[in-house]
């Protein structure tokens, strides 16, 4: 066989298997938007019951995480996500799914070293870099405000 030029081959490959991005974007927009609306409905309902803005936000997060977990448990989340893509990934529902799905999956390796240890195998980086960046920015903020 003639030697394959890696760059030329890469070019050949890149023409094949294009993703249907327009459909993906439409799905992502509507599903992602809809999830945010559900969040807004929960916040408004809670506020109408006299709960503070901050606590209402918490309740919305918890409810969405619960719903996402329920969908994941019943095997429906991935069916929706297959179409919605980033629409289910980017809202907090995606974070919850990323926590719950490995926990379910690795239950067969035990409750401690399977379920417990693998729970953050996908979502862990979000927490690691989220918290670390908030501390770094916090340090800068602290000293810029004059410290102490």
């Amino acid at each position: 066989m003639k030697k394959i030029n890696q760059n030329e081959y890469q070019k050949m490959v890149s023409h094949l298997g294009k993703s249907p991005w327009i459909t993906n974007v439409i799905w992502a927009f509507f599903v992602g938007g809809a999830i945010c609306v559900i969040g807004q409905v929960i916040i408004d309902t809670a506020k109408n019951m006299g709960i503070s803005q901050e606590d209402a936000g918490c309740i919305a997060s918890i409810s969405l995480i619960f719903l996402s977990g329920l969908f994941t448990g019943f095997g429906l989340f991935d069916k929706l996500a297959k179409r919605a893509g980033a629409g289910t990934l980017v809202p907090i529902t995606g974070f919850a799914n990323a926590v719950i799905s490995p926990a379910m999956e690795f239950k067969t390796e035990g409750y401690v070293l399977g379920l417990g240890a693998k729970m953050f195998v996908i979502a862990g980086p979000v927490i690691v870099y989220g918290i670390s960046s908030s501390i770094l920015c916090g340090l800068i903020y602290f000293f810029m405000k004059g410290g102490m």
Binding site: W21, N24, A86
Partner: peptide, 17 residues
């Protein structure tokens, strides 16, 4: 909420694709 939430998801979808 719908429009901005959807917009953030669209950006991510374009990055994926």
């Amino acid at each position: 909420a719908f429009v901005f939430g959807g917009f953030l998801c669209v950006i991510a979808q374009l990055l994926i694709d």
